[in-house]
Design a protein around this nucleic acid. Structure first.
Lengths: 343, 343
DNA sequence: TTGTATGCGTTATCAT
DNA sequence: ATGATAACGCATACAA
């Protein structure tokens, strides 16, 4: 039977390299993936042949043969949330010179969407999976447990990790912020929250705990909505909160966007910050320090979470799982002008 | 010879489906990809078998066999820049129900890094490529021209597209902002710019053109740095600009982060906005409208650019290239309080 | 340490 | 419209 024309684009294959180097194809394969298992001499020959031919391994063929794609799947709620944008930056940076590729999926804060994306991702047999939060649906949880690859849950800590975990306690973060406001001398400290995803709810719980500790909790101090967060929403919610509780003299905001909105609303309404109104945010975006007055916030280590998640995943892929499968990376209260109340 | 155990994870394959449906494997393949070429009857049989077995096609095998991955490569400077985060959101949304996956690469504003990523991406034979800007290195340009897949350049318009293009004129955007400030009655209108990537430079050129038209250009009005943009940098640059030109009565900022910084610096220094200082930004982030006073900006249609780029790419993949390979999506000047100078 | 034979799951080619 | 067969390029299993 007559040999057919090659279907591929004529790119050099591993066989071409092997021929050129005068070795077997498998030796080329090994020299590229596990250089330690090939003699230095052959390794050199292979490297030379690769360079001369401009050989680039075909990822698709590799994935098919090994039943494993060099892909790390990442599930985040949204990339326009700059907090997750920074997590993703940390993830990319954590990749370093590995041949791993990142595949990002947006859950849009939906557990069902997370489930669906998990199915899609899993169908490619990723090398590892990074998912946001600890509130997966039971189905998603089952998928993760049977993923057959390392899994890292990020942004939060909690009991019962699927596999590995890097994050911090949003409850404690919320509590620290509220406690700070109370200690600064504010008495009617409101909570303003948008979107109210699970992490926001835990911040609210932390706020409540601190308020109850100080004996100054009042449910009317809490103003939330499921609407996505924005600066203008911060203005709106603050107006709403003040209408409900005119005595309000401070607010802890769900996140920094809202806090910025509150600051602008105060400017607009002629309310002095921090003397008439204290403001605290969450996440400590860069602008908090630059605002006038500068805004108190809870710094979260988003970039580091991304980096660490990848490094744990890579370790697990390599077979040496981190001794510490669960890392609480903490947070840091950043007290600033916006909560310096004159007593 | 004895049959070996299956290497794969035991997932049903196309052969299993074919057996179950009582058809050939290729018919299953076709029924899934080009239903129109399979008789309705067999199509039904195949669909049933797929459902019963829970068959999911193996992307890797598909990519290997067809020499084409269902991946659309996207190259952006950075994801922490919220402008590009929104572009990417548009891209994902534009995917709709297609089976395409997105692969994102960060060039970090480096032409060389863009070249490198292009090599990596190309090695997977993507279905399409979306790249940012029009300032590719000659090598990158050559790679794109020989990519063998549709290419969309985004964010800018310009002569000589590689293939397709969606964007707007940064020159005209900069010119419109500067002209607006001049028409508002400001005389000593500064330009503040960070990073100064090619697009920023074109905005600067637009600013200069408008200033020269008005006969009020002075090189000392321009303050730039290659440092990445941030709110605090906006404060610093504005201080620097004022030190250089005490008569400064307005600034057009490279982007909204800087503009916000200028606003805060004015607040801190007791400079009234817009009466003492006019401020205009670029991109029109959500917070511009919510700021106090609200900040004039040039609205750019980032999300739409992402959506459109994908829809053009998808059309080209399907063989029907858009009649209009080059789309200028425009921009919109958003005049606000920050430039309402009392004459 | 190196090589041989074989399989990975799918699609392109060609024939019917 | 449907099917048989041969790639696709690489990695696994096993032998040497």
């Amino acid at each position: 039977m007559k040999p057919r024309a090659r279907r591929g684009g004529g790119r050099p294959t591993i066989a071409d390299v092997a021929l050129r180097a005068g070795v077997g194809a498998i030796t080329v394969s090994r020299a590229l993936r596990e250089p330690g298992r090939v003699s230095p001499e052959l390794r050199r020959l292979v490297a030379a042949a690769v360079a001369e031919l401009g050989y680039v391994p075909d990822r698709n063929a590799r994935a098919l043969a090994s039943a494993r794609a060099d892909v790390i799947g990442v599930l985040v709620p949204s990339l326009t949330n700059s907090v997750f944008a920074e997590v993703v930056r940390g993830i990319y940076d954590g990749l370093g010179d590995s041949h791993l590729q990142v595949q990002i999926g947006h859950t849009h804060y939906s557990g069902l969407e997370e489930e669906r994306l998990l199915q899609v991702f899993l169908s490619q047999r990723p090398s590892a999976l990074i998912v946001s939060g600890i509130d997966q649906t039971p189905a998603a949880r089952a998928l993760l447990e049977n993923a057959g690859c390392p899994v890292v849950q990020i942004m939060e800590t909690g009991p019962d990790p699927v596999d590995m975990m890097v994050g911090f306690s949003h409850f404690e973060g919320g509590r620290a912020a509220a406690r700070h406001l109370a200690e600064a001398g504010y008495r009617n400290i409101g909570f303003i929250g948008a979107r109210m995803d699970p992490r926001s709810k835990r911040r609210l719980a932390g706020y409540r705990a601190a308020m109850e500790d100080a004996g100054i909790f009042d449910p009317r101090l809490v103003t939330t909505t499921t609407v996505p967060s924005s600066v203008s929403l911060g203005r709106d919610l603050f107006r709403e909160a003040r209408a409900k509780m005119p005595a309000l003299d401070a607010v802890f905001c769900n996140n920094d966007d809202l806090a910025l909105g509150v600051l602008f609303e105060c400017h607009g309404a002629g309310l002095a910050v921090p003397s008439a109104v204290g403001i605290a945010g969450f996440n400590d975006l860069e602008m908090m320090e630059a605002a006038f007055p500068s805004i108190t916030s809870v710094r979260t280590h988003r970039y580091e979470i991304g980096r660490l998640a990848v490094s744990m995943a890579r370790a697990a892929i390599s077979g040496d799982r981190p001794p510490q499968p669960m890392v609480d990376i903490g947070f840091e209260l950043m007290p600033r002008e916006s909560t310096k109340r004159a007593r």
